[in-house]
């Protein structure tokens, strides 16, 4: 199941992260997971939120550069080999992982990982085929 991730371009300077989180707070948007990829000059803030379309529109209105990207959210047992099992499936099917990040949820004992892969349709089919549990939009947004 594809879920929507919001990516925001932020400069590496004081106050820029909080500018984003302030907008989200004002609009009652709750962050489910986040990760930052950064260089010395800029970063990309990646967010899984409960109301992605609203967050995207509000961030754009406030002049920030944002985009919506489809990612997969995978649930796996929180035990040794849990992630290895998922990556093995992707690897065997030659699906390249562009980036990934883990997050926790109070609603489950499982580990949750967000994957951005090159061929998302293919990845979805292959993962499901091996019985790996993909979270639906609703499941993620309501975590």
């Amino acid at each position: 199941m594809k879920i929507i991730q919001i990516s925001v371009f932020i400069e590496n300077k004081p106050g820029r992260l909080s500018a984003v989180t302030d907008i989200l707070a004002e609009n009652d948007v709750n962050i489910r997971a986040l990760s930052i990829a950064d260089t010395s000059d800029f970063g990309i803030l990646r967010l899984i939120v409960d109301k992605p379309e609203l967050a995207y529109e509000r961030l754009k209105e406030k002049g920030l550069t944002a985009s919506m990207t489809n990612v997969l959210s995978v649930r796996m047992p929180d035990q040794p080999g849990g992630l290895a099992n998922v990556l093995r499936v992707l690897n065997e099917n030659e699906i390249n992982v562009e980036y990934m990040y883990a997050f926790v949820s109070k609603a489950t004992d499982d580990a949750l990982v967000v994957f951005k892969v090159e061929n998302i349709e293919d990845a979805e089919v292959k993962l499901k085929g091996t019985g790996i549990n993909l979270l639906t939009k609703d499941e993620v947004y309501k975590l």
Binding site: F9, T39, S67
Partner: peptide, 15 residues
């Protein structure tokens, strides 16, 4: 300025 058009979600793309 990185506008919507120039923005990509990955660091490699921006670099």
């Amino acid at each position: 300025e990185v506008n919507q058009e120039l923005f990509t979600d990955d660091v490699k793309g921006l670099e």
